[in-house]
């Protein structure tokens, strides 16, 4: 197995990791860096559970090779709260009741964070479109959308 050494920033920390060429960013985060908050729901870029920010953009980390991440800046769900204080999106979605089983939640938090970065005052429809790739089977999405809307007001 061919390995490659990459250096990247993950949640504000500089990490140097030896990764096999076929390792995905998702596998690297979970297996090499023990950042298990990012979830694997399909390994095919279809469910959004593994969404992370890569250079500020939400990506399905199961569809990105770790070797492509040389020099990249990655933010995972573990990087959203600072010093134990929840981010606005985390706080608002929690308060709105937008969390049930919690398995889609990490990816949902990241997609919503990315949305509010680029569009601080989204409409309901813009919120729904921003999380179209994040499947949730529990909540029916109502409270997630409401939470993101509330986060925008905070």
């Amino acid at each position: 197995m061919a390995y490659q050494r990459i250096t990247l920033t993950v949640n504000d920390l500089t990490e140097t990791v030896d990764v096999p060429h076929n390792m995905t960013l998702l596998q690297m985060l979970r297996q090499k860096l023990s950042l298990t908050g990012t979830k694997n729901g399909c390994s095919a870029g279809e469910c959004g559970a593994c969404t992370v920010l890569m250079n500020g953009e939400p990506v399905n980390s199961c569809m990105v090779l770790a070797a492509e991440c040389e020099g990249a800046t990655i933010v995972t769900v573990e990087g959203l709260a600072k010093n134990g204080k929840l981010s606005k999106v985390q706080e608002a979605v929690a308060k709105a009741g937008g969390v049930q089983c919690g398995f889609c939640t990490p990816g949902m938090m990241i997609s919503a964070t990315a949305l509010l970065e680029r569009n601080p005052n989204p409409t309901d429809e813009e919120i729904r479109q921003a999380i179209v790739g994040n499947l949730c089977r529990c909540t029916g999405y109502f409270r997630i959308v409401n939470g993101i809307k509330e986060a925008a007001k905070m």
């Binding site: 950042l35 298990t36 908050g37 990012t38 979830k39 694997n40 995972t76 769900v77 573990e78 959203l80 709260a81 929840l86 985390q90 706080e91 979605v93 929690a94 009741g97 969390v99 919690g102 398995f103 939640t105 990490p106 938090m109």
Partner: peptide
């Protein structure tokens, strides 16, 4: 919910 902090921060533990 008493599990919500863990779930929004990614620290909730699932089998994988």
């Amino acid at each position: 919910r008493n599990d919500v902090y863990e779930k929004v921060t990614g620290s909730a533990i699932y089998v994988d």
